[in-house]
């Protein structure tokens, strides 16, 4: 055994808990995305509905301000009523921006690492494949949660401030509804975008396929219905086709969560089952892909 110098150096600081390894990946993704001006513009536009809703909250709390429109107060109160439906309308409008956010954050999340073979760097560090995927998913979901759940809770807070009814902040059923519906929107988009990102190396191709998978089923179904619906079902359309498109699934589940009339005939449990199956299938593909990826390279 040779004699070594006395300069053997170790890192003497403390190693962080490995349980939080995914947060490093998530935080890096969030920071990196925030630097992109185009993305900040998308977020700003996504905030427009929040501003409009905030204005409505303010007017609803200050009806005397719009008396000069000479609309009967009762009619105004009906229009500006702040109830669960108000929050559902807000969240429904955010679906569109969630789609764009997931598209921008998710398309390159894994595909860029695969293209640059950076997965080797990640996985040779003290992180697992689960940490890696969870960190990437957290990054993709973060901004979507901000523009859905985050801003919906901010609206609840504004409502409490404007009406000085602080007890409205503790409306647990509404909190749960916002939480549930936000997850119904955010989770499938996040998993779908990450799975495509793991399957396709080109960020642009991944984004295009994501958009196609999101919009095309609705377009195809509606065209199909227009052409053959009457011939197939006569006047009693069972509307099972509503199970085949993500926006339809959201509409049905959102209405069920917020206690609104259901837009489609089949029971919402079918829509929930399809959404859960979709997420599970995507998660399985993602898992298989990350397990297999980069071992040969």
């Amino acid at each position: 055994m040779p004699v070594y110098t006395q300069t053997y150096r170790h890192y003497t600081g403390e190693w962080r808990s490995r349980a939080l390894a995914w947060t490093v990946i998530a935080a890096n993704g969030i920071k990196k995305r925030w630097r992109n001006k185009g993305f900040r513009l998308i977020l700003f536009l996504a905030g427009a509905m929040f501003l409009a809703s905030a204005a409505r909250l303010y007017l609803a709390a200050n009806l005397d301000l719009i008396e000069f429109f000479e609309i009967p107060t009762r009619r105004i109160s009906e229009i500006l009523a702040i109830n669960d439906q108000f929050y559902y309308q807000y969240l429904e409008a955010q679906q569109f921006w969630c789609f764009f956010t997931a598209l921008i954050c998710g398309a390159g999340a894994i595909s860029t690492d695969r293209k640059t073979k950076a997965l080797i760097l990640y996985l040779s560090k003290p992180i697992t494949r689960f940490d890696y995927v969870f960190g990437k998913a957290a990054h993709v979901a973060f901004y979507q949660y901000i523009i859905t759940m985050g801003l919906a809770f901010a609206l609840m807070l504004l409502n409490a401030i404007f009406t000085e009814n602080w007890m409205s902040l503790f409306n647990l059923p509404l909190i749960l509804r916002i939480f549930a519906y936000s997850n119904v929107v955010v989770l499938p988009l996040t998993i779908l975008s990450l799975t495509l990102s793991a399957l396709i190396r080109s960020r642009e191709m991944c984004a295009a396929l994501f958009a196609a998978l999101f919009w095309l089923p609705s377009v195809i179904i509606q065209s199909f219905r227009g052409l053959l619906g009457r011939w197939l079902w006569g006047s009693s359309d069972p509307e099972w086709w509503s199970l085949c498109s993500l926006p339809n699934l959201w509409d049905q589940l959102g209405s069920a969560i917020f206690g609104q009339p259901l837009p489609f005939a089949p029971h919402w449990i079918y829509h929930l089952a399809v959404l859960a199956l979709f997420c599970a299938a995507m998660a399985f593909v993602l898992h298989q892909r990350i397990e297999a990826v980069e071992v040969v390279g």
């Binding site: 890192y11 190693w15 962080r16 950076a118 760097l121």
Partner: peptide, 29 residues
């Protein structure tokens, strides 16, 4: 410590940011 042969860099990050990120992935505060 592993220095792979493949080119695997994040072009947008600075050298300092990249190394900080990698150090944090290693578990440093």
């Amino acid at each position: 410590g592993f220095c792979p042969s493949a080119e695997n860099m994040y072009e947008q990050l600075t050298g300092f940011e990249f190394l900080t990120y990698m150090a944090r992935l290693n578990g440093m505060n």
